[in-house]
Design a protein around this nucleic acid. Structure first.
Length: 580
RNA sequence: CGGGGUAUAGCGCAGUCUGGCUAGCGCGUCUGCUUUGGGAGCAGAAAGUCGCAGGUUCGAAUCCUGCUACCCCGACCA
């Protein structure tokens, strides 16, 4: 998309707002609204104004360049899809209410696509049939709709959004692996080029997408919804769902099992308080129900929390619900005093975290109202049950790779990549013939980047108290030109001249020709966040000068009017080169 | 879906507890004059179904009931 290189403020649609919008809590939300980049239409639904649209267009341009460079071909698939397509993959009934379903006038079930695996498989299975045509990668930059339970934080979690989504098809796992690595590298280039200062690629949970491996790209920001754990040297990075800590558990001689009376002490805090011990000396039991109706007894040391994502993965279950007291009793356990001992492993799945399996002499329930045991030792007193890592990593726990204390950070998920395998290709008959004429399901990968979310993440990382500080690569314009007192002919003529000259050089200029007071113009220029500012005023024109300033830097520089344009053009090119 | 909050002019708010006359303030907008280097001054003007629907009352922005929208925390999040 070609962007018009020039714009006068007297024409630009979008009013800058002096006060923070009532509802905004994050920097990106406040500044994107105040600076007239976006406007809210409803919960999680936004319009882009001209300035915002230009930023998005520039992000999209970078996405196209990088996807083209790794062999992607751009397509465009519909947002409204017939339900049958999703019934084929099993997702029509598989995914929850975030999929917006509706009927057309003929009563046919339709949906708004929240992602396009089905649509792209529909396309590829009829266009590609032979190993000779593989691999292929298609991508699009298209609207997605997810009926989020709770949109939040301005542009960071919305219902309708633009996503760059790409899908690759392969004849072999090795080929997918290679493609995955190439896209991974392309994503690192994308996030560097859009100007994110800190964006981590981390291991993540493939979740309901299926598939074997996935990474998320996390823009680090305090307002991020996701939690990342990393080694201080950066050699290990993982999100909360998969992060593992390798705690050392104290070994001790097993002492004799001892029943203690603990009347009314049901929670870990109560029991530990009553017995005068720390939570690391107790075992905590949590009960879940999985969809087949089976009860799951999860056991973890009192100072850890159960990581439900890990437990789901271990159980191979898509859902996990807390079990009620009735279900717990039904399985022969006593709520509040539950113990894995004497439970029937045929009836109840017992999953024990390493923290319990490797600790000695814990306090656990006695399966009898008002009683606990001291000195439970997993090997001696239970000996069966599935031992697994089902614990949430904690800040400061030892990193599994380096042993250094893990750091915890919050991040905005701006991109993700998955190795899908044949989840969609087998269910939807997306096959190819190999060199021997044998039919196989294609192996797939998919790769997404949220465009609007990336814009918001950049603001979160690049702003000061006055507004955004756009990286030149995605700034709506390269230069903001301000004319003070344009009613003085000499001033206006000088400034108009600079405007024409810069535009003629291909520099994108936003020209504040309104004749506002300096304070108004400068404050609004800060909200526009354009990296370079040129000011022409009676004061500078007398000396044949213009004033040059960089956004976010206090100092100003006076330039000769005749050389100002080429000087600024040089600055713009250098800054662009740095981010290319 | 649970918990909390908000809804009054384009934006941000006061007024609501304790019902009462013509519903105010700041910013913005329009007109005119004066101003011109970090959100100007004066004078004038336009702009409000007080979220919606019922109810109580002589009288409702204000009290009662129901609903809706939006925001925050949580749950959820291919």
């Amino acid at each position: 998309m070609e962007l018009c290189p020039e714009m006068r403020m007297t024409r630009l649609v979008g009013k800058k707002i002096k006060e923070d919008p009532r509802d905004a809590t994050t920097a990106s939300h406040k500044f994107l609204v105040r600076g007239a980049y976006v406007r809210s239409v409803g919960a999680g639904i936004y319009s882009l104004l001209p300035l915002g649209k230009r930023i998005v267009a520039k992000i999209e341009r970078i996405l196209r360049e990088e996807m083209d460079a790794v062999g992607g071909q751009e397509v465009l698939m519909p947002v409204v899809l017939p339900a049958e397509l999703w019934e084929e993959s099993g997702r029509y009934d598989g995914v929850g209410e975030e999929l917006l379903r509706f009927k057309d006038r003929n009563g046919k079930n339709m949906l708004l696509a929240m992602t396009h695996e089905e649509a792209v498989v529909h396309l590829i299975r009829s266009e590609v049939n032979s190993y000779r045509q593989l691999p292929v990668m298609l991508y699009q930059i298209q609207t997605k709709y997810r009926d989020e339970a709770r949109p939040r934080a301005g542009m960071i979690r919305v219902r309708e959004f633009t996503m760059k989504d790409a899908y690759s098809f392969h004849a072999s796992q090795e080929c997918l692996d290679e493609c995955y690595d190439r896209v991974f590298a392309a994503y690192e280039r994308v996030f560097r080029r859009v100007g994110l200062k800190e964006c981590l690629s981390i291991e993540s949970d493939p979740g309901m997408m299926g598939g074997s491996k996935s990474h998320e790209f996390m823009a680090i920001a305090d307002c991020g919804e996701d939690v990342v754990f990393m080694s201080p040297d950066g050699s290990y990075k993982a999100n909360r769902e998969v992060a593992c800590a390798c705690c050392i558990f104290e070994q001790a001689e097993p002492l004799a099992l001892e029943k203690v009376h603990t009347p009314g002490m049901r929670s870990i805090d109560e029991v530990c308080g009553f017995l005068g011990i720390g939570p690391e000396k107790a075992g905590k039991a949590v009960f879940f129900i999985i969809p087949d109706g089976k009860l799951v007894f999860a056991m973890i040391r009192g100072d850890f929390e159960i990581n439900e994502a890990k437990l789901k993965r271990h159980l191979g279950s898509a859902r996990l619900d807390f079990a009620g007291d009735a279900a717990i009793r039904c399985a022969g356990a006593e709520p509040g005093y539950a113990s894995p001992m004497w439970l029937d492993p045929q009836e109840v799945r017992i999953v024990v975290d390493y923290s319990v399996a490797k600790s000695a002499n814990l306090v656990v329930g006695a399966n009898e109202n008002g009683y606990h045991y001291r000195n439970f030792n997993f090997e001696r007193d239970l000996g069966f049950g599935e031992v697994a890592d089902i614990a949430c990593a904690r800040e400061g726990d030892p990193c599994p790779v380096t042993g250094l204390p893990l750091q915890m950070k919050r991040g905005i998920e701006v991109g993700n990549i998955f190795k899908l395998g044949d989840k969609y290709s087998s269910s939807m008959n997306c096959n190819f013939l190999d060199s021997e004429g044998q039919s196989h399901a294609m192996t797939m990968g998919c790769y997404g980047i949220g465009v609007g979310r990336t814009m918001a993440a950049v603001v979160e990382q690049c702003h000061d108290e006055h507004g955004p500080v756009w990286p030149v690569s995605i700034s709506p314009y390269h230069v903001q030109l301000c004319v003070l007192n344009p009613r003085e002919d000499s001033v206006r003529v000088a400034c108009d001249g600079l405007y024409d000259e810069l535009c003629g050089m291909g520099i994108e200029v936003l020209y504040d020709d309104r004749g506002e007071k300096a304070g108004v113009m400068f404050n609004e220029a800060d909200l526009s966040g354009i990296p370079f500012r040129l000011t022409v005023s009676p004061r500078t024109v007398v000396d044949g000068k213009a004033e040059f300033k960089q956004r976010g830097i206090k100092d100003v520089e006076l330039l000769g009017l005749s050389s100002a344009a080429s000087f600024v053009a040089g600055k713009v090119e250098a800054a662009l080169a740095e981010l290319s």
